[in-house]
Amino acid sequence: MKVGIPRGLYFYDYYPFWETFFQELGVEVVTSKPTDKEILNLGVEAAVDDACLPVKVFFGHVRFLKDQVDYLFIPRYVSEYRRTYICPKFLGLPEMIIFRLKAPKVLSHDLTAYQKGADFYRGVYVFGKKITPNGMKVMRATYTAWKKQKAYLQKKYLGYQPQDLIDGKQEYVPDLKKPLFAVVGHAYNINDRYASMDLIKKIRRFGGEVLTPDNVPFAEAVKKAGLLPKKPFWSFAIKNFGGSIYLAENYPLKGVINLNSFGCGPDSIITELTERYLKRKFSLPFLNLTIDEHTGEAGLVTRLEAFWDMTVERSFAGESNLPAHG
C-alpha cells in the first residue's frame, strides 16, 4: 500500500512523525516534490479563489500526488495543544479536497488535543487501525514515531529550520553567531521555498542567520503569550506572538521579519500586536512581507536589502556629519 503525504500546510510540523509511523506499519510513504511553478499552477486552478496561498499550494500538492498513490493522507487537525484551536481552514481541509478534487481515496480522521494531549494519540490509533487490525503494532509504531518526532523537535530548538532537516540534501548547520533575524510566520510559508521566494536562503546569502517560532518550545511561547490581555485561541497566534517575544528576549536579534500570506485573518491582528509589542519593549526593527502568487522577486528583494542595510550595515547613512551640499 502506498500513502501520499502532500508537502503543504502541516507537512513541516509533523512529517517525521507520520513518515516513521506509516513505515513502521509497513506502508510505503510518498511525498510530493517541493513546491514549484507546476504545483502552484495546479493548486490555483483547483482551489476556491478566496482561499489563502498555502491552501492553494496544498491543493497543488494533492493534485500532483493523487494518481500516484493508493491513499492520500489528509488528517483533520483540530487542535494541536490543550485549549487551543487551529485555523478553521484546517478543519474543512479533508472535505475541501474530497469535493473539490473528487478524490475518494482520502485517509482522514480527527486529531485533537483540546481536552488533553493524549487525545491526539487516540486519533493516531484510529489511523493505525485503518491499516492493520493489530493494535499492539499500532502502539509500537506510534511510540517509535513519537521518539523520532521528539528528536526532530530537539533539533529545531537548536536553531535548525524544518526545511534544513527535511528538504536539504546535506544538512545545513546554523551558525547563531552571525547577525540574527527572527522570521515570524507560519511554518508552511516560511519553509516553502517557492512561496516564500527562498526568504531564509536569501538572508543566509546576505550573511545572516535565521530563527523562527519553530525554534521555540511551545510551553515557552504560551508563557510569553500570557503578556496579551487575553490568550489567543489559535495555536499559530501563540507560536508567532509568544515565539517572537521569546526570541527577542533570548537572542541578540537584529530585526524581525514577518511573513504573511495575503488574506490571512488571524495574522492581520497578531502581526499588528506583535509589531507594537516588539517596538515598545525591545525597539526592534520590524519588516512585514506579504506573499501571494507573485513570482517577481524584485519587490521582496528591495525590501530585504534595505532592511539588511538598515539593521546590519548601518554605516552607509551614517555620514550625516558631512557638510551640507553647496
Binding site: 528583494v301 534595505a306 542595510d309 552607509f316 547613512a317 555620514e319 550625516s320 551640507a324
Partner: peptide, 18 residues
C-alpha cells in the same frame, strides 16, 4: 548596486543634514 531605499536615505541626509 544598492536598493533605492538606502540610496534615497543617503542622498537626503547629505543634502538636508538632520
Amino acid at each position: 548596486v544598492k536598493n533605492e531605499i538606502t540610496a534615497h536615505a543617503v542622498a537626503a541626509s547629505y543634502l538636508v543634514p538632520g
